[in-house]
Structure formats: structure tokens, C-alpha cells
Simulated scan of single mutants.
Amino acid sequence: MQTGRMRTELVSEPGDAARPNEDFASIGLPASGQGGSLVLLDGVTPPRDGTGCRHSVPWFTARLGGALAELTVSFQDVPLAELLSRAVSRTAGAHAETCDLSHPRTPQATVVLARWSPESVEYLVLSDSALLVESPDGTVTALLDDRLARLPRSALATDALVDATVRNREGGFFTAAADPSVAVRAVTGTLPRAEVRALAALTDGATRWVERFGEGDWADCLALVRKEGPQELVDRVRALERADADRVLLGRSKTHDDATVVYVEF
């Protein structure tokens, strides 16, 4: 049984108030009181020339995220990779008859999953969102799928080149789209529950504080979230984005990206 008090916080803010937020986040706490789970998705913004799908990215992330929220709570004995495979298959089935799911830009998302019990903490990370794990002694470990970050910039020169050569391809990077077999590409593992004091899951709109602006390391980031809350992290990212008017650090990326932070403290 869960003992003591658990602190959970979730903040999700669109990068542009005029556009729907493409992120999805949830925290599930089963009625049994045993364990729980978190789900974090970052929908991939589609190109202007279409995706072969009549549905929006928020439509996709809502359905994939909803399926994962249900499955991670309901099937606690099934590995997270298998649950991701089932959720992708279920979501694909919801629009396979109306959409071209073979299109390289069919709606897709990054994925972070964590599920805890009194004995263990399981995790899954696919693509460039992050899961931070704090141990009782204060050590912070970033669990990352860094395949996209390791690609040479020349491989990412244009959307067309990315789609043709590295998106959901061997030697490139992977996201959850319409192929359930992508689940085996995720970074997964299990930690003893006694070795985890807190978790923080962040989409790349929030990891900018570390990865783009260099305001601190992962331990500093988690400390900020714990002490001042997820909203403070997002607010600081927004201030840094506005201050980079000459795009010295932002480069060709969006000025503001959807930013989501999920924090769980045991």
C-alpha cells in the first residue's frame, strides 16, 4: 500500500495561445492505493503540406495518451513497452480506414512513461522528452533517448531530408506513430522503489532551460521544480525565449514551444 503523503504536480502550457497544445500529460493513482503511473507525450508539429491524416496532432495525443493512462493503471503486470505497443495499435485502429498511416508525418509523439509500485519504478522514454529521477541522497539521473541529439546537423537540414532518411528509421530516431513495433525501440528499465525519491517528466519545451539555454544541469532543474513548482520552470523558459530576440540560442527552432512538466514526489 502507498504510505505517507505523495506530492504530484502537473503544468502544461501551449507555446502559442492561438494554437492547440499538442502535449498530453496524466498522473494515475489506482483506487487500490498501490502505486501509480505518469504519462507524458509531446506531439510532433505537422508540416504545412500535410500528414496524410484528417486528424490533428492533439486528436492523436489525446487518444494515445488516454489509452496509455488506462493501460498503465489497469495492467500493472504488463511491461511498459508492451503497453505502448497496444496503445499505438489501438490508436492506429481508430483512423486506419480514413487516413494514410504510412505517411512519414502521420500524427506522432514522443513518449515518457513511469509506473511505480511499493517495490519498483519502471520507466520508458522514446525520443526527446526527458525523465529525471532523484534518489534519496539527492543524486539526479536523466533518463534520455538521445538518438535525435546524436544525429549530425546535416541530417536535420530540412524536413524533407529528415522524413526521408532518419525519422522512424534505423540509424535515425523513433517516435510513437502508427507502427506498434516502435515500442521495442524505447529506452526502458526498472529501479528499486527505495532508490527513488522523486520523478520529473518534461517535454522538450521545458527541457530548454537545461538543453537550450544552459541555465543549470538536470539536478538544478529538478531542484527548481521541487522548490518552486513546475510553473516556475515554464515561466523561466518563457522569459529566456523572449530575451533571445536575436535567436542566438534558439536558432531555427520555435520561439515558444509547448511546455509540460509532471512532478511526482514520494
Results as ranks from 00 to 15, higher is better:
212 R>I: 12
226 R>Q: 12
199 L>K: 09
234 V>F: 06
209 W>I: 07
207 T>Y: 12
223 A>R: 14
231 Q>P: 00
202 L>H: 01
257 D>C: 10
207 T>E: 12
229 G>S: 08
230 P>A: 15
221 C>L: 15
205 G>P: 00
222 L>K: 02
238 R>N: 07
198 A>E: 05
220 D>S: 15
199 L>E: 10
215 E>I: 01
213 F>M: 10
217 D>Y: 11
243 A>W: 00
225 V>A: 13
204 D>A: 12
201 A>T: 01
205 G>T: 07
236 R>E: 11
222 L>H: 01
208 R>D: 06
215 E>W: 02
236 R>L: 12
224 L>D: 07
222 L>M: 14
200 A>P: 00
215 E>Y: 02
235 D>I: 04
206 A>K: 03
196 V>T: 06
198 A>T: 06
219 A>M: 10
239 A>G: 04
198 A>M: 08
227 K>I: 10
251 G>R: 07
223 A>K: 07
253 S>H: 06
240 L>Y: 02
204 D>N: 12
197 R>S: 15
224 L>S: 09
249 L>C: 08
220 D>G: 13
204 D>H: 10
209 W>Q: 08
204 D>G: 10
240 L>G: 05
224 L>N: 04
255 T>V: 15
228 E>D: 14
211 E>L: 13
218 W>T: 03
235 D>M: 06
221 C>I: 10
211 E>Y: 05
244 D>A: 09
222 L>V: 03
242 R>D: 12
240 L>I: 05
230 P>M: 12
197 R>T: 11
210 V>S: 10
206 A>F: 03
198 A>N: 07
244 D>L: 06
231 Q>V: 05
229 G>F: 05
236 R>I: 08
231 Q>L: 12
227 K>N: 13
258 D>K: 01
198 A>L: 11
197 R>I: 11
201 A>F: 04
249 L>T: 08
201 A>Q: 01
201 A>H: 02
243 A>P: 00
231 Q>A: 15
244 D>C: 09
196 V>S: 06
258 D>F: 03
233 L>C: 10
218 W>S: 02
209 W>A: 05
233 L>Q: 11
244 D>N: 07
248 V>E: 14
259 A>H: 09
261 V>E: 04
216 G>N: 08
216 G>F: 04
244 D>K: 01
213 F>P: 03
229 G>Q: 06
242 R>I: 00
258 D>W: 00
238 R>I: 09
197 R>D: 15
250 L>H: 04
249 L>K: 11
239 A>R: 06
214 G>F: 09
244 D>Q: 07
202 L>C: 13
226 R>H: 03
256 H>I: 10
239 A>D: 09
249 L>N: 08
240 L>V: 05
199 L>Y: 03
212 R>V: 15
234 V>N: 03
206 A>M: 04
258 D>P: 00
226 R>L: 15
217 D>S: 12
241 E>I: 11
222 L>F: 01
250 L>A: 08
235 D>Y: 01
255 T>N: 07
228 E>I: 02
216 G>W: 02
237 V>S: 03
225 V>C: 06
